[in-house]
Amino acid sequence: MAKKFPLNPPHPERICWGCDRYCPATSLGCGNGADRTMHPSEMLGEDWYLYGDWDIEPADIPQQPADPALIARQG
């Protein structure tokens, strides 16, 4: 079973998010020359899971309706 994926970890820059191993950024176990995979919150902001099809259902955070202005810009 896969580990639960954290929505907004406190220090995402310290971990590689590329697989379920969650290696420290300074000690990657993926192979020689591998680079750290960023957490979506680092690239897309803290509300990254509200937009798109991530197949994540946060139990403790209520779903907000999508902002029509944001959808119009993406479309």
Results as ranks from 00 to 15, higher is better:
residue 2 A to E: 13
residue 2 A to M: 12
residue 2 A to T: 09
residue 3 K to Y: 14
residue 4 K to R: 13
residue 5 F to D: 02
residue 5 F to K: 10
residue 6 P to Y: 06
residue 6 P to F: 11
residue 7 L to E: 05
residue 7 L to M: 02
residue 8 N to Q: 03
residue 9 P to Q: 02
residue 10 P to M: 09
residue 10 P to G: 00
residue 11 H to T: 12
residue 12 P to Y: 06
residue 13 E to K: 06
residue 13 E to I: 00
residue 13 E to C: 03
residue 14 R to M: 05
residue 14 R to D: 11
residue 15 I to K: 03
residue 16 C to W: 03
residue 17 W to V: 03
residue 18 G to D: 03
residue 19 C to E: 10
residue 19 C to A: 11
residue 19 C to N: 11
residue 19 C to M: 08
residue 22 Y to D: 01
residue 24 P to N: 12
residue 24 P to W: 09
residue 25 A to S: 06
residue 26 T to Y: 02
residue 28 L to R: 01
residue 28 L to C: 06
residue 29 G to A: 01
residue 32 N to T: 08
residue 33 G to K: 04
residue 35 D to R: 15
residue 35 D to Q: 14
residue 35 D to F: 07
residue 36 R to A: 09
residue 37 T to E: 12
residue 38 M to Y: 14
residue 38 M to L: 15
residue 39 H to N: 00
residue 41 S to P: 10
residue 41 S to C: 10
residue 42 E to A: 11
residue 43 M to N: 14
residue 44 L to E: 09
residue 44 L to T: 11
residue 45 G to N: 07
residue 46 E to N: 14
residue 47 D to T: 11
residue 50 L to H: 08
residue 51 Y to N: 05
residue 51 Y to A: 12
residue 51 Y to I: 11
residue 52 G to Q: 06
residue 53 D to W: 00
residue 53 D to N: 12
residue 54 W to E: 08
residue 54 W to I: 07
residue 55 D to V: 15
residue 56 I to M: 04
residue 56 I to V: 00
residue 57 E to C: 08
residue 58 P to K: 02
residue 58 P to E: 04
residue 59 A to W: 13
residue 61 I to F: 07
residue 62 P to H: 04
residue 63 Q to G: 15
residue 63 Q to V: 10
residue 64 Q to M: 13
residue 64 Q to N: 13
residue 65 P to M: 06
residue 67 D to A: 01
residue 67 D to G: 10
residue 71 I to K: 00
residue 72 A to N: 05
residue 72 A to S: 02
residue 75 G to D: 15
residue 75 G to C: 15
